[in-house]
Amino acid sequence: MIGALRTPEQQIVTVFGGSGFLGRYVVSLLAQRGYRVLVPTRQPNMANYLPLGKVGQITPIHANLRSEASVAHAVARADHVINLVGILQETGRQRFDTLQAKAPAMIARLATKAVSFTHVSAIGANADSESVYARTKAEGEAALLEARPDAVILRPSLMFGPGDSSFNRFASLARMLPVLPLPGADTRFQPVYAGDVAAAIVAAVDGKVPTGRTYELGGPEIRTMRQMMEFVFTVTERKRTIVPLPAKAARAMGSVLGGLDWLTLGLIPDELVTTRDQAILLESDNVVSEAAAREGRTLQGLGITPTTIEAIVPGYLLRFRKTGQFDLKRNTA
């Protein structure tokens, strides 16, 4: 194994999607371990939000998943490759088919030097799903395994952590609306801390994760969408009314909002937009399967103790309280 012959400082890890929400956790942990990290991005000059490392340890480079030449350059010297790229909504030239169905195998095919390939998909990936998101996630997994049978595939549930688009979005909605129409109110999720997912990814780079397998990563508790919203209300000290939306109504609302968002060129606040495809996703539970739990293809199976939402989420939702996080009376009580 390469890890037994060379130190992390002598190895290069290319992280596609390294400038995104999960990517920043992954890049930070890799840097702490000593790896040299390349972060392909369409705009390297805008990647000022990457974690800090030693001088020259973390380097943003130009690459576009629609350009094989740029991808080949990004992985030419990589000892390890990580793919975190995924989108919840198509915008402009960012398409599900390109980024989720085709890109994973294309990257793997070009990364001829890499001794490991770690790919982050999602619980709910399903080739037979009505959701284009879920279907292209499954297509990407299948194509990747054909090109790289020894790849490690990680499927997280809903991820949380500072900067997330889940609990932050819930809190924004609670601040804006007195009544919240809620698609998938009774759909179950297993929220997982992004830092725990990043730990699993870095363990795969370290060679500590059995390869050629698909892992499902969930937190310690299962909660419905309604329960997560109510948790946010408690933390932000707001009273709001939840109106569960039936599946047909949620799909119709998604079609209208998605269409308006497209017509206005994305001017509708992101918090208010739930597309039809997302409404379809919210019709199915998003939890670790019994098979994955039984076979140890989970965080616990990898020796990682999942973090609770109570331990992390309140710390970054305090700003959504009416009196904010700098309430002098509260802080001096």
Rank of each mutant, 00 (worst) to 15 (best):
T187Y: 04
L52S: 10
R276W: 11
A249D: 11
N45K: 15
L52C: 15
T274N: 11
G219K: 01
A199E: 14
P149C: 11
T98R: 09
M225G: 04
L154G: 04
H73V: 06
A138E: 10
A31V: 09
R188T: 06
G258F: 05
M1S: 15
F233D: 05
F231E: 11
V15Y: 07
S157R: 01
G266N: 09
Q57Y: 10
S172L: 13
Q300V: 10
L5R: 12
P51V: 12
T332K: 02
R33L: 02
T136M: 03
A127N: 10
V15W: 01
P220N: 06
G163S: 08
L145G: 06
V243R: 15
H119N: 10
L144F: 02
A247L: 01
F233G: 00
R297K: 08
G124I: 14
M46K: 15
N48S: 15
L272D: 13
Y193A: 03
L272C: 05
D327N: 07
I87S: 05
M229C: 05
L257R: 04
E139R: 11
I304S: 15
K322I: 08
G23K: 00
A31M: 02
Y316D: 11
R223S: 11
G17K: 06
Y35N: 06
A134S: 02
N286L: 00
T264S: 15
M46V: 13
R321M: 10
R33I: 00
A311I: 10
A143I: 05
L299M: 13
A252S: 07
G23L: 13
V192W: 07
D79H: 04
N331A: 07
T14V: 12
L173M: 09
G53E: 00
V243S: 07
D196H: 14
T214N: 03
R169F: 14
V55C: 15
R95N: 06
Q227S: 03
P162C: 08
R24I: 12
I309N: 07
L5K: 12
G315I: 12
Y35Q: 15
G140Y: 08
D285A: 03
L265V: 13
